[in-house]
Nucleic acid binder design. Sequence first.
DNA 1: CGTGTCGAAGTTGAATTCATAATTACCGAC
DNA 2: GTCGGTAATTATGAATTCAACTTCGACACG
Lengths: 226, 226
Amino acid sequence: MSAPEKPSAGRPPSLAPRALYEQVAERLRQQIFSRELEPGSRIDEQKLAEEYGISRTPMREALKVLATEGLVTMQMRRGCHVAEMSADDVRQVYRLLALLESDAAMEVAERATEEDLASLRQLQERLEKQVRQRDAFFVTNEQFHLRLLTIAGNRWRLQIVTDLRKVMKLNRHHSLFHKGRMAESLAEHRALMEALEQRDPVAAAAIVRTHFEKGLAAAAGMIHDV
Amino acid sequence: MSAPEKPSAGRPPSLAPRALYEQVAERLRQQIFSRELEPGSRIDEQKLAEEYGISRTPMREALKVLATEGLVTMQMRRGCHVAEMSADDVRQVYRLLALLESDAAMEVAERATEEDLASLRQLQERLEKQVRQRDAFFVTNEQFHLRLLTIAGNRWRLQIVTDLRKVMKLNRHHSLFHKGRMAESLAEHRALMEALEQRDPVAAAAIVRTHFEKGLAAAAGMIHDV
DNA sequence: CGTGTCGAAGTTGAATTCATAATTACCGAC
DNA sequence: GTCGGTAATTATGAATTCAACTTCGACACG
């Protein structure tokens, strides 16, 4: 067996020394989102730990974190599996995202500072330029939504939405905007910015709600199972 | 056909094969809710593990679960502390509960079966009899709310509300209904049942919203810090 | 030939051990 | 006497070891 080398030999201790199990958790998330670990597949903690060059302890701790996030399921003495999202799960999560984010939009319309709106505007402008780059569009889109949540300023809601968005990524079709939907989504964002700048909470909330309804319809269309 | 009876010779019936770390997590929750472990106090995992008669491994796993639930906070190399709820946290969580549970009430009004409504009615009746027993009232009240969520049938929302209600219990004043509030709360539940039986989603949602607004006002009054 | 039981292999759950970072206590210098 | 630095102590993070359960397969018996 090869000795587990320490690759961080010359690295000065960074100001944010995250725990090993957190790094492992993040790496696991990426592997799940990228489908390297497929939904439904079993996770052999021994094999994975060896692959990562760590012991089983931090691997197990990381898996427990993912389990409470809903990305994996654990059964006593039965091992660990990557979670699966049914079409109905997708519908349910969309409904919650619509509910929570429309409420956030309402609060932002009521209480955002000029700088807050400026940061949203900036993300919106970047989004406009990325209509033809699916991956980049997806990333910026998520940044916009999380920025809105951050401005609204309810840390519990931010945490909840962040977790829900994670499990949404289990769904293969979620990130696959088709062309038409991207342009449409962009228009809805524009309308939202308009409502926010006019300080119209009701309109802002309504726009976000329909934004998610349309997003669900688009995703459902791809699943062929509504 | 041999009896699948397991001769549990001298061993306590482990018909509940829950993982040790889960039992530990539950015990920790109870200690936190009962204020044996006070908000803000440090948790010495070694001492607690010894106290429980277990090793540090399941204790650490349990603490990680509680951390993701928001009941404790963990800092790298700095140990673990019982979480604290500020007055603002209480407000934020109340807002989310109002949002999520009013939405659930809407769905229940739209789609509940007669049996669903009957089970709610039963809890409501029990509640009526417990106006003078604070603790029992509190328990049944929670059962009623969770029953509503269960009927609404969105497992993500149920999980979220369950977790939010856990952190609410960190707040000392939450469970302390004063007399007037208990009667008032009861009346609101009655109104909700009425709206549900009349299949009026809008009214049901509105009633739940105001139910939480009044609950927040009552709690805030006790905190003396609005 | 099918069913059921016993057993071996392998994986998970928990305990123990080891290493390292943080805290504290102590000592010396200013 | 106080401040600062260094060493000792202690608690946490991670690895390793140990134990128990699950699963799979072979063999015996009906």
